[in-house]
Design a protein around this nucleic acid. Structure first.
Length: 102
DNA sequence: CTAGTGACTGTTT
DNA sequence: AAAACAGCCACTA
């Protein structure tokens, strides 16, 4: 049982049309201050399980950038918009409205 | 065991 | 408001 599984389980609880920050996932998993590990866990996200990884964004309300391709961010944004999440012209989400609170 | 690598965050320029 | 800094630690080789 790795720490990743804990994070994945938290992410699975996020309902449609809502988003969470990396730090919040770590906090809910009982491991505050480990946002970076959450990011690393998402990078290793298993595709064969239904993990809504696209609902995890950074504390600024933006989609975190992954070094090389860049196309994944566009896909993530499309997935969120399809669930009703609204982005402003700068590509940010209003966490006060769409942020998930357990 | 050590060293390198990050989908991050809060504070400080 | 945007950028730079220093912490954070699981995982892989």
């Amino acid at each position: 049982m790795s720490v990743y599984s804990r994070y994945y389980q938290i992410v699975r609880r996020v309902p449609r049309g809502r988003v969470v920050t990396y730090g919040q996932v770590a906090y809910e998993a009982g491991l505050p201050g480990r946002a970076r590990q959450v990011g690393y866990a998402m990078a290793a996200c298993p595709e064969d399980e239904d993990i809504p990884w696209h609902r995890v964004i950074n504390a600024r309300g933006e989609i975190s950038k992954r070094g090389s391709p860049g196309s994944f961010e566009r896909i993530q944004r499309a997935l969120l918009e399809a669930e009703g999440v609204v982005f402003d012209e700068r590509g940010r989400v209003d966490l006060d409205r769409f942020g998930w609170t357990p």
